[in-house]
Structures are given as C-alpha cells and as structure tokens.
Simulated scan of single mutants.
Amino acid sequence: MNARQAPEFPAWPQYDDAERDGLIRALEQGQWWRMGGDEVNSFEREFAEHHGAEHALAVTNGTHALELALQVMGVGPGTEVIVPGFTFISSSQAAQRLGAVTVPVDVDLNTYNIDPAAVAAAITPRTKVIMPVHMAGLIADMDALAKISAETGVAVLQDAAHAHGARWQGKRVGELGSIATFSFQNGKLMTAGEGGAVVFPEGETEKYETAFLRHSCGRPRDDRRYLHQISGSNMRLNEFSASVLRAQLRRLDEQVALRDERWALLSKLLGQIDGVVPQGGDVRADRNSHYMAMFRVPGITEDKRNELVDRLVAAGLPAFAAFRAIYRTDAFWEFGAPDETVEQIAERCPNTDAISQDCIWLHHRTLLAGEPEMHATAEIVAGIVAGA
C-alpha cells in the first residue's frame, strides 16, 4: 500500500443475509413487540449465555440500561454513585436522573480505567454504587473493586458499553459477580442502531424480575387487566432490533479476535512514534474487545489535539477527540452534582484532565482492516504528529 494514500477500512455497521433473514423472520411472525414475539426473548437467552450471566434484559438503549440497573440497586435521592471522571456522560447522567449525586474520581493514566484507590477514598455513608467503565473494552481492575465492595458493602455496577465479549482472568462480564450493562448504539461492537442490555449474575434473580417490571411500565408478563405492580417506564426493545442483534452476536467473537490481533500490531507501531503513547493494558484483562484504538499525545493543548483530529480525519482516518471530563460539561452541573467546584474535582482528577485534553481515538473498524492498513495508519499518525 502506498503510504500517501488513505487506507481503506471496513464499513460499520456490518451486515449480511443473517440480518436480512432476521428482519424478515421478525416481520412475518406477526407480533413486533417483545410481549408477543420471540426475537427479544431469544436474544436475551443468547446474550446472557455468551457473557456467562444468569439473566439478560434487553432495553431501548445503553443509557436506559444504566438507569434501570441503578434503580433496582437502590440508587435514588440521598445516595451517591462513584463514577470515573473520564467516561461518556451517560455514566453520570443515569444516576443524576434518578435524583442521586454523581461523584467523579480519577482514572489510571495507563489504562484510562477507574482508579481503585480513588474509589476507596471517595466512599461515604451515602455511597450506594461504584460504577467502573471498561474503557475501550479493557476491563477495569475488578479484583480491587470487588475487595472494596466486600469491605464496604457498596455494590459494583459494571458499565460494559465497550466490553462485549471481553474477559477478566478468563471470566466473562456476567461471571464477575456484579450486574453489568451494555449498549448497542450504532458505533458499538454489536449494534441495531440503538439498544441496550442489563445482565444479572447468578443470585440476582430478584433484581432481574424487578427490572423486568420497571422496564415494562410495572406490568407483569401475563397481565391482561392493567395491574401495574410498581412504577416504571417503557424501555422495551422491539422485535426487529432484537433480530438484528442476534445476527450481530454470532460474529462478535471473530471480530473481537481480529481486533485484538490488529491492536497488538498497531499499538506497537504507535508506541514507536515520538510523542505518542497508546492506551496500556492489564495482563489480567486477558480478552480486550477494543471498542476504540486510543492513544495520547502528552503535553499538547486541547485545541492542538482537536486540530490533530481534524487533520487525521482529512487524511482518511476515523479519528475522534476523547471524552471530555464529565465535570467539565454543563450537563453534569444541571442537577445531581457533588458540593464541589470544577477546580476542586479537577485537583483530585489530574489524570482525567490530562487524558481528556490530549487523547485521540480511532473507531474500532480501523482494527478490522489488514496489517498493511495498520502500518499506513501509524505512518499517517506519525507524519501529522511530527508536523504539529
């Protein structure tokens, strides 16, 4: 491949006759919502089994998955939820919309995952949930977080929106002893445009049943007389989306393996570029699903980082600026913010501030291309960073 030419990457989302057949199957079954069809039920069984969970509940999107999970875990007014400062805003807003206070803590500068020491320091008598986010598919330090949870009685909720098919020391997300949520938004590792899921490990059947009621307006499965048992909302996934997700799930393992192989090469190449530091790993996270190919250019300003992203896009790479620290968004402060200033939170979250300022990520379809495209990608990054 000529390094001066833009590399060609596979399109995303990907689909074939499996999705087409699924959509026709959902169409022709004659019932298009979950209470009358079988696609959602089948997808939930298959997704739970794939992730080692006892139950899975499909919902409208990943943000609703977080909100629903937090609600059945007892989050509401008067409680606090600890989240990483470096994450997508839904991690905090799901708790804030329930009337809880979101408490951002710092992340590890190498993995970009929540720092267990910062979590331990932030726990108060009001803390109800610790929410690690498995950033870019790299599972957070679940050993340390499980220890903190056991010592304090504060439950863990895994935000696994990036971590479809990921593993920690051989264990799948549903085998790590805590509830987890997933997203199926258009850019995610498997998608139906929108969608989400909550997975429940062994021993959490009661919470699963409560979540089912709350996601369906408080109405039992077999209700014919509008006997709404508890307060809820309509978060039900439709049959068409579920049929697409069933097809997407079947090719997930192959795609994860390919991305893992390609990241081993691309991260090595990026690490050889002066001024570029790729996201690190954790040997205990023995299967990384690589939702994003992330790297930092330490020392540059946010404006300069944004210019780099624009130049990478112009050169043909699917590049994006990393998440803004949640406490540096107006949305975070509308309601449910801690009694602190931006500066006070930033002072205890220096790694979050740094990563938010100088980090760039490439869409995971980059990692579905061939080895020549990995070399071409690294050459483009090297040339543009050097030029900056």
Score class of each variant (00 low, 15 high):
Gln185Glu: 15
Glu371Trp: 05
Ser233Pro: 01
Leu66Phe: 01
Ala337Thr: 02
Arg97Val: 03
Gln5Pro: 06
Arg126Asn: 10
Val276Thr: 05
Ala378Gly: 03
Thr63Trp: 12
Val119Met: 04
Arg20Gln: 13
Val83Trp: 00
Ser267Ile: 01
Asp260Tyr: 05
Leu157Tyr: 06
Thr111Tyr: 02
Ile384Ala: 01
Tyr15Val: 10
Gln185Asn: 15
His162Trp: 07
Val256His: 07
Met294Thr: 14
Glu209Pro: 05
Asn306Thr: 08
Leu249Lys: 06
Ala376Ile: 02
Ala382Arg: 15
Ala247Gln: 13
Gln29Tyr: 01
Gly232Lys: 01
Ala166Pro: 03
Lys147Asp: 13
Phe335Gln: 14
Asp310Leu: 14
Val105Met: 02
Glu347Cys: 05
Ile179Trp: 00
Val81Ala: 10
Ile130Pro: 01
Ala56Asp: 08
Arg45Asn: 09
Asp16Lys: 12
Ile139Leu: 10
Glu28Pro: 06
Ile89Gln: 11
Lys171Met: 10
Leu68Thr: 10
Thr87Arg: 12
Thr205Trp: 07
Ile82Lys: 11
Arg214Glu: 13
Thr102Arg: 11
Gln14Gly: 11
His215Ser: 15
Thr124Asp: 07
Asp286Cys: 04
Asp282His: 04
Pro132Cys: 06
Arg365Gln: 14
Ser183Met: 13
Gln71Tyr: 09
Val277Gln: 10
Gly232Phe: 00
Lys128Ile: 07
Pro372Lys: 05
Thr352Asn: 02
Asp286Tyr: 09
Ile130Gln: 02
Thr366Trp: 01
Thr301Ile: 11
Thr352Gln: 02
Ala319Ile: 04
Gly137Arg: 01
Arg219Val: 12
Pro84Ser: 05
Asp353His: 00
Val244Ile: 15
Ser243Asp: 08
Ser267Asn: 06
Arg221Pro: 02
Glu334Ile: 15
Val313Gln: 08
Leu98Cys: 07
Glu175Lys: 07
Asp159Phe: 04
Ile130Ser: 02
Met131Thr: 07
Arg259Ile: 08
Arg365Phe: 11
Glu28Asn: 13
Gly153Thr: 04
Ser233Asp: 13
Pro77Glu: 14
Val107Arg: 00
Gln93Leu: 12
Pro298Asp: 09
Met374Arg: 02
Phe212Met: 13
Phe200Gly: 00
Gly370Gln: 13
Leu213Gln: 09
Asp274Gly: 10
Glu46Leu: 14
Thr301Ala: 12
Val119Asn: 03
Leu258Tyr: 08
Gly299Val: 10
Glu343His: 05
Pro104Ile: 02
Glu371Cys: 08
Gln71Glu: 15
Glu209Ile: 03
Leu145Ser: 06
Arg167Phe: 05
Asp274Lys: 13
Pro338Phe: 06
Met131Val: 11
Arg305Cys: 01
Arg287Ile: 02
Glu206Gln: 13
Ala337Ile: 08
Leu66Cys: 04
Ala257Gly: 07
Asp330Trp: 08
Ile130Arg: 03
Ala69Met: 08
Pro7Leu: 15
Asn186Gln: 14
Leu252His: 11
Asp253Lys: 12
Val107Leu: 03
Phe323Ile: 00
Asp303Trp: 07
Leu23Ile: 14
Ala18Thr: 14
Gly137Glu: 02
Arg324Tyr: 11
Met294Leu: 13
Leu258Ala: 09
